[in-house]
Design a protein around this nucleic acid. Structure first.
Lengths: 143, 143
DNA sequence: TGACAATTCAGAGTAGGTCCTATTTACTGG
DNA sequence: CCAGTAAATAGGACCTACTCTGAATTGTCA
């Protein structure tokens, strides 16, 4: 939580009970929760909170670099409190995203000819496929 | 378009004017369009078409391997007719996704200790940052 | 402590689908 | 090349995940 207070101060963000709970919740969750999932969890502590507050707060957190917005394949944005380099396994069946760490991948950088005028902030390897769980259930073909 | 006819036949998908136009449109667009963008474009040719038809058709195309569903950072799914290995630049400001090709990245594979029971179908490098366009406009700090 | 800008809440509005059902259409065998 | 049938489509209701507006409230600094 120290990181939270420090980052808020650095960016001139006011510290409110709502923001504390939102940040705590996103850190507690092992998955990459959506705004709505965070909202439901925080609502148990602060019953008056709205989804709008949670959504806007998560956007602010992203801008402040406190959490990151990770790629999604479904319909909802997903957030990740792990701002350290790491990589993702993406299941094309259930839409789930799982973290994995593999140091050699952390050193991958796009060559200048590719990056060009692009200001790179993060490079990630995304492995798509079918997770063990979904593979079991999978017997049917296309249609 | 040959690929389209062939893939449809292989998967027992009927060939309809709607599906032809949807596939043509997604190939024409250099970006990675959303279902809604494809819908608006195709509607100019087939005015009776519905967003529902476009959405379902794109799902079918994904299952048949005719197009792929790429990662997004907003709330809309994005589709890509380029099923060959390639990589993405993702602008965190405008949400845009641009393709890039860099052969050495195509050979990246996750080690067994990571993949485990996961059945890998595709591995992609995603470079996040700020594109040249957005960098220009960017003068303001957080908030 | 008091002023005030930042933040929150409530409710309405929007984007991007998804589901249901009746109707239409593309493919198959005769 | 035509009819039967399963697949596909259109239209409309419904849903999820935000996003906006405006008024009320609250944290922060002098």
């Amino acid at each position: 939580m120290d990181l939270f207070y420090q980052t808020c101060r650095e960016h001139g963000l006011k510290i409110t009970p709502q923001r504390e709970q939102i940040y705590k919740e996103i850190c507690r969750s092992a998955k990459h929760p959506t705004a709505d999932q965070v909202y439901r969890a925080v609502k148990r502590r602060i019953s008056s909170i709205t989804l709008d507050t949670v959504s806007r707060t998560l956007h602010l957190f992203v801008k402040a670099g406190l959490v990151i917005s990770v790629e999604s394949y479904g319909t909802a944005r997903r957030y990740d409190p792990n701002v350290q380099p790491h990589h993702h396994l993406h299941c094309t069946e259930c839409g789930g995203i799982m973290d994995f760490e593999y140091r050699p991948f952390d050193r991958i950088t796009a060559p200048a000819q590719v990056a060009g005028d692009f200001e790179v902030s993060r490079t990630r390897v995304v492995v798509s496929g079918i997770c063990a769980n979904c593979k079991k259930k999978q017997k049917r073909k296309v249609r």
